[in-house]
Design a binder for these strands. Sequence first.
DNA 1: TTATAAATGTTATGTTATAACGTATCCATA
DNA 2: TATGGATACGTTATAACATAACATTTATAA
Lengths: 150, 150
Amino acid sequence: MNEFNTIIDFVEKHCKARGKKLTPKRKLVLQTLLHANKALSAYELLDYCQTHFKQPMQVMTIYRILEFLEQEHFVHKLKVSNQYVVCSHILCEDEHGTPQFLICEKCNKINEQIIDPQMMTGLQSNAQQEGFTVVNPQIEINGICDQCVE
Amino acid sequence: MNEFNTIIDFVEKHCKARGKKLTPKRKLVLQTLLHANKALSAYELLDYCQTHFKQPMQVMTIYRILEFLEQEHFVHKLKVSNQYVVCSHILCEDEHGTPQFLICEKCNKINEQIIDPQMMTGLQSNAQQEGFTVVNPQIEINGICDQCVE
DNA sequence: TTATAAATGTTATGTTATAACGTATCCATA
DNA sequence: TATGGATACGTTATAACATAACATTTATAA
């Protein structure tokens, strides 16, 4: 069994356990994101899906499904580009920490890490001092990956 | 002389020194951002400007002027919300460091700081390890400000 | 089997951003 | 002081992104 199937199976199982369903369309969206192996916007996903899987799809459906997959913590939404990417830690059972994304501005490849908790604490206490309470932290950093640098 | 005028004068002077001009429209956009005292999108700026200053303005012009003001480092663009805000360190002559923004998701008030250089170095060397070179770093963190928490 | 909820289809429209081209204004130089 | 080029701004159209509203289908439990 390849890794895609491992993930699909995992997601299917977890959906069931939570009383949700991984419908064929939802599975297709997830497969598309896995296959693309980079962040895609809703419209990019639409194109990708139609090009590579010859499946009928609609933007509305994609937005709804992405929202679902995000709620279930299978994908992340990058707030800067409004793109979506499969969570790198999707197969980890435990609670994920605060994610940090390194985003290649050329090829859109994503490197997802967990922010060092100590650093996160520092960030939050600093925010508190400035009169802010952090919510839904997520850090996105633009860059260029080694493959895209000449 | 109030602070707005201090800033306008400063900007005017610096434009001249760089062979650029702070035209009436550009001045108006800057004044609007100063007056609003929060981050505004291009369309929000359009509304605000028309409401408070009764001046004719157009979206295209606003986008162009915001781009200009950003290039000249007088305003920052928040990448998550595509909003613009006057640089808090606009009157500092020296090079500004990597900015970090705390953004109130209720009232859109912005707190701009300089990221601790040591932390920034850490971030960058970590990125390097992961095969990424950081470009135009800027960190945006959503939260709620003390005034908006009940 | 049928009532209900959940998922998806369909159409329309709202929102944000930019392209393309025209006009006006400023300023240096002949 | 004319003129030609650069810069700024006006105007229209459209691309690109996102969601509202309602219809239809499908799955599932009573």
